[in-house]
Design a protein around this nucleic acid. Sequence first.
DNA 1: AACGGCCCATCTGTATACAGCCTACGTTCT
DNA 2: AGAACGTAGGCTGTATACAGATGGGCCGTT
Lengths: 248, 248
Amino acid sequence: MDLSSSQTVRALLKLRELILSGELQPGERVSELPLVERLGVSRTPLRAALLRLGDEGLLEAIPTGGFAVRGFDERDLFAAIEVRGTLEGLAARFAAERGAPDAEELAALKECVDALDRVLQRSAITTKNFANYVELNERFHSRVIALAGSPVLAWQIERAITLPFASASAFVMVQAALPEAQTMFTIAQDQHRCIAQAIEAREGARAEALMQEHARLARRNLELALHNQRTRELVPGAGLIRFRGRTG
Amino acid sequence: MDLSSSQTVRALLKLRELILSGELQPGERVSELPLVERLGVSRTPLRAALLRLGDEGLLEAIPTGGFAVRGFDERDLFAAIEVRGTLEGLAARFAAERGAPDAEELAALKECVDALDRVLQRSAITTKNFANYVELNERFHSRVIALAGSPVLAWQIERAITLPFASASAFVMVQAALPEAQTMFTIAQDQHRCIAQAIEAREGARAEALMQEHARLARRNLELALHNQRTRELVPGAGLIRFRGRTG
DNA sequence: AACGGCCCATCTGTATACAGCCTACGTTCT
DNA sequence: AGAACGTAGGCTGTATACAGATGGGCCGTT
């Protein structure tokens, strides 16, 4: 059976989109029957999708049964980013301290940094080369994790970034809309390069610290974005975030 | 509906027990129909349990459909412990660096350390006061996480320790059977005390480092246990572990 | 008019029937 | 005898029917 077009996957994607787009408010109960006709799938695959989103953290179980949309505040976002940075930092350290790192994978990582250099040197990040940057950025992170050589760690990181605003490129789109954009991209890219160097030089502590700081750049982007009415709604899953004070 | 005695929970517990006890071999396909009669539940709650165990990491999805029992090797266990130590270290740092820590929660943490002292000073850890120690140990870890004051971090840690050999007290039972038992308990308890002191003194880096090292004690216990034929089968989920060389 | 109890609508949890697909075994052809 | 093809069995994915429980609304009473 083609899983990529299975009813379960379809329900999962549609439902996740429904939640992230804010059509379902935080705290709101997610009833099955209304969604059955809304998503065009039967209850069984819908339930599977609900269970999955519950594990992902977008939904929380209601004690009496069923699920409700989970809400987040700023501190939750910061914590999620810090968790990702910590785990990716661990991956960077593992990669650096590994006994026999794959020379090919190391070369692939450095190639990735070079490719990012070319994208950034060519021009400012616009919507045109934006997707390209995001893809390279994600590839960089994937390669560091691959170099760590630990399936369990990779799996845990994967689980940790299921929250929409925790992943590495969650705020890149926000970043591009900020006045500080170019500075941020420059700093991030320098961190990419230093991390690759640290891994190659077997400097585990340095690689770890750099990767953690790299994640904190995402936090700074988020802080800037949240204090700006215009960029606020660009944050992924903005509808789930309970802003302090008045809402945007 | 009483969730604690629901068919889904019953299936989940029985199935988890079946996997951890080794009745289902790693790599073996977990078919639904045979389990329906074996567990006495219908396919629907059984499927829910399978999905859940897939998210927990005990099962892995088969590309063509269904699930298989996941296997682990020593490196996987070490990575899982390191991940837990890293996240709990983060929690300890959060707890230490928190703006206004709850004085009551801090007192509860110190009370927990004192209680552990009393258990350890009274006598050697035997099967008698063993459960007591495990409970206090888990309470200590819970209280540090509570002091961190981050629901997202707590949730991520909860998710990270779903692997049976990743949790804080996974190897305590093994530890008690080792010749080095008393030394290990003494060291662990000193770490407990120092972590509490570091949190109280707002020494974030120290609290984090201590908690990480505390987790590495579990790793040392595991290493000792795995090199001993007698203690090897005491490791939780031992049936899932592919030992290097010949099997025990 | 306010409060309490009863009833109904609705929802979840569960069981089961059905359809398509994968796999493995047996048979047949070369 | 070996390989390839066909068939049958079993398995998963999906849909739907049924039961228990829960919560809200309405009506009656005070």
